[in-house]
Amino acid sequence: MKQALIVRHVPREGAAGYLQPIEAAGYAIDRIDVGDPAFAGVDLCSPDLLIMMGGPMGVYEQDLHPWIPIQIAKLADRLERDRPTLGVCLGSQMIAAALGAPVYPGGRMELGFAPVALNADGAASPLRHLDGVPLLHWHSDTFDLPPGTELLASSDVYAHQAFRRGRNILALQFHAEMGEDPRFDDWLTHFWADLDDARQCGIALRRDHDVHGPGAVAAGRAMVGEWLAGIRG
Rank of each mutant, 00 (worst) to 15 (best):
A24C: 15
G41V: 09
I51P: 06
A73P: 11
A28D: 12
R83A: 09
Q71P: 04
M52I: 05
F39L: 10
Y60I: 11
I29R: 13
A76R: 02
V34T: 11
I70Y: 14
E80V: 02
Y27L: 09
A40L: 12
F39D: 08
P11F: 14
P56C: 10
D30M: 12
Q62Y: 03
A4K: 09
L44T: 09
A76V: 01
M52V: 12
D36T: 02
F39E: 06
M57H: 02
Y27I: 04
Q20Y: 07
I32A: 14
A16C: 12
A73D: 05
I29K: 00
R8C: 08
D48Q: 06
K74E: 08
R8K: 04
G91N: 07
I68N: 14
D63H: 12
L5P: 01
S46K: 09
L64A: 13
K74H: 15
I22T: 12
R8V: 14
K2S: 09
H65F: 15
E61V: 04
R8P: 07
V42N: 01
V10D: 05
S46P: 13
L5W: 09
P84C: 15
M1S: 01
A73W: 08
A24R: 15
Q62P: 06
I6S: 00
P21L: 03
M53V: 15
G54K: 01
M52D: 02
A28I: 13
E80F: 15
L5N: 10
L86M: 13
C45L: 01
H65G: 02
K74T: 05
A40T: 10
R81T: 04
D30C: 08
Q20A: 07
L44E: 03
K74A: 07
Q3A: 01
L90T: 00
M53Y: 03
A4E: 08
L5C: 05
I68A: 11
L79I: 10
A28N: 15
G91E: 05
E13A: 11
G41Y: 06
I72Q: 05
G14W: 12
A25W: 15
H65M: 07
T85Y: 03
R81N: 14
L75E: 12
V34C: 06
C89I: 07
A28E: 15
I29C: 12
E23R: 01
D82K: 07
I29P: 11
L75F: 01
E61D: 10
G91Y: 13
A24T: 01
E80K: 06
I72L: 10
A24H: 14
M57L: 00
G54H: 10
I6E: 08
Q71R: 03
I70A: 13
L64E: 13
L44C: 12
